[in-house]
Structures are given as structure tokens and as C-alpha cells.
Computed example of a mutant assay.
Amino acid sequence: MRHLLPPLLVAAFVLIAAIPARADALADPATHLTYMTEQYWPMNYSRNGRLAGLSVDLLRRMWREMGVPEQPIHLFPWPRAYDMGHVDPRTMLFSMYRTKGREPDFKWVGPIVQGKTEVFTLRSRHLSARSLKDLDGWRLAAVRDVASANILRDAGLRYTGSRTPDTAIGMLTRDRVDAVAMDALQFHHFAALLGRPGGEFKPIMTLCTDPLYFAFSLDTPDALIERFQKALDAVTRQPDYRALLDHYLN
């Protein structure tokens, strides 16, 4: 006659068997990071209450490659996320331009894609500039703490710092500023959301073409940075990686 274990004893065995796997997951330093991003289409954005975008999909694939369960990703306005990334320990912030000025402030995993920031004006204004010096005296706007704002600041140019891209574009369309410095993909996306036709604007200057990266706080262990980099490299070698790029960038 077959002897059956009592249900409570069976449940106890199942729970005990699961404890080692759960403990391993909790011990993984990748689960102790705070992951932060912003609304930056098509890299990272909220869609129907769920985060999506090229960088988000890459990160999820990297977690799977590393054997790390999916982690919470916190969505903040960029100025707040950037401040937290500077101050808070064990943070990862994305997608961030890896510029010369930011280089010593973070540890980096990437690149994700090549970025491009430009200066945009209203086509009807017929403005032009060939160098940053030509922008001296212009009324400029940029989102605070992004790469384009830092370039203006480092060049000694005064600008109005906005909290969000649509606010900066709104200042341009209401003639409160002469030009906006912004990531090109982000500018066109938010201009479209505001119902502004693309032909209304023109780029007059490229500020930088630095790559976008995952940026980690300086206290992140080097061994963990290496794991993330190896995971990203492995993901970019997968057969469907090109299709992922085409889905978000083309």
C-alpha cells in the first residue's frame, strides 16, 4: 500500500526546496541596485502603464542573460533621476549620454546606440548659427541636467532650464526662446505629441554625437559592471538583435 505524505509536510518540502534559489537571487548584487529611467522615446518610456523602449528591452534581456529576475524600474523626470544617480548609492540610470564631462562621475556599460543632440529653431524665424559662440545673446532652453544643457553651460551660455522636453519645446513655439538644445529623437517625438508639424522646426547645429550608455553609481562593484557589460555584449550577438533595433529606431 502506498504511503501518502500529509499535505502540510509536502508543502514544507516544496518551500524548503525553493529557499536556496530564493536566497541566491537575493544575494546577487544586481538585485540590490535601484534602476531608474525617464520618459525618453524610443529608448525608455511608459506605454499602457508598462515601461518599454530599446534600453528597457535590452536591460531585461541582460537580466535574463545574467540569471537575474526582472527588477523594478523607477520612472522619474530626468533632473530628479540624475540627482539621485549622483547622490544615492547602488543606482543604475539610463539612457545617458557618455560625455567627457560625465565620464568620471559614473561607471559605464554600453554603448546602447549612438546619440545626437542638436539646436532647434522655428523655421519661420530664419535664424542661423555656425558655432556655440554665435549663440551668445540668444534666448536658449534645454532640459536641466541633460547633455545638451551641460554643453551650453560649459560654453558659458545662459539658458532657461526646463523640467521636461515638452515644456522646452512649448517655450520655443510661444516665442519665449529663440532655440532649444535637445536630443534629436526626443525633440521630434515630443513636438509630434504637441501636434506640431516637423516642418515647423529646423536643426541649425549639432552639439554632440556621443553614445548612450547605462550609467552606474561609482560605488557599484567592478565585477558587477563587468557582468552587465558581458551580458550586453551577449545580447547584441543574438540573432534577433537587429530586429530589435529596427523595431524601435526605424
Rank of each mutant, 00 (worst) to 15 (best):
Q238H: 13
L193H: 08
A184S: 15
D240R: 15
V235H: 10
A243Q: 14
G198K: 02
E200Q: 00
A191E: 01
A243Y: 08
A223H: 10
D233A: 14
P239E: 13
P165L: 10
P211Y: 10
T167V: 12
A234V: 13
F228E: 08
K202S: 04
K202P: 01
D178Q: 11
P221Y: 13
Y159T: 08
M182T: 04
R174P: 01
R158T: 14
A231N: 06
T220N: 10
G195P: 00
F190Y: 14
A184G: 08
K202T: 06
L193D: 09
R237I: 09
M205S: 07
A184K: 14
M182F: 06
L172Y: 01
A243H: 11
L194D: 04
D233K: 12
G195S: 00
S217R: 10
D183P: 02
P203Y: 03
Y213G: 03
A168W: 05
A231G: 09
L218F: 09
D166W: 08
F201H: 01
F201N: 00
L212Q: 09
L224M: 09
A155M: 08
L185M: 12
L224W: 03
S217Y: 07
G170R: 08
H188E: 07
T164G: 04
I169H: 01
A181L: 12
R237S: 13
L157H: 03
A181E: 07
T167N: 08
A179F: 05
L224E: 10
Y213S: 05
R227Y: 03
L224F: 04
M205E: 06
I204W: 02
R176V: 10
A243G: 09
T160R: 10
G161R: 08
V235Y: 10
Y241N: 13
F228K: 07
Q238N: 12
M171K: 06
V180K: 05
G170H: 06
V177T: 09
G195D: 00
V235T: 14
D233F: 06
Q238G: 15
R242E: 13
K202Q: 07
K230Y: 09
D183V: 08
D166P: 02
D183W: 04
C208H: 11
F214P: 04
M182E: 11
Y241E: 13
A192H: 01
F201T: 02
A179T: 05
V235E: 12
A223K: 12
T167W: 03
T209H: 08
L232H: 07
T220M: 14
T206S: 13
G170E: 03
F216A: 07
P211C: 11
E200D: 04
T160Q: 12
L244T: 14
G195F: 01
A192W: 00
T236R: 15
S162A: 13
Q229M: 09
T164V: 11
R163F: 13
M182D: 04
R174M: 11
H189D: 05
T167Q: 12
E226H: 10
D210P: 03
M205H: 07
G195V: 01
R196T: 00
A231I: 11
F190L: 11
R174W: 07
R176E: 10
L194P: 00
Y241V: 14
L172S: 03
T160H: 11
A231L: 12
I169Y: 01
T206A: 14
T160S: 10
Q238F: 11
S162T: 15
P203I: 09
A234E: 13
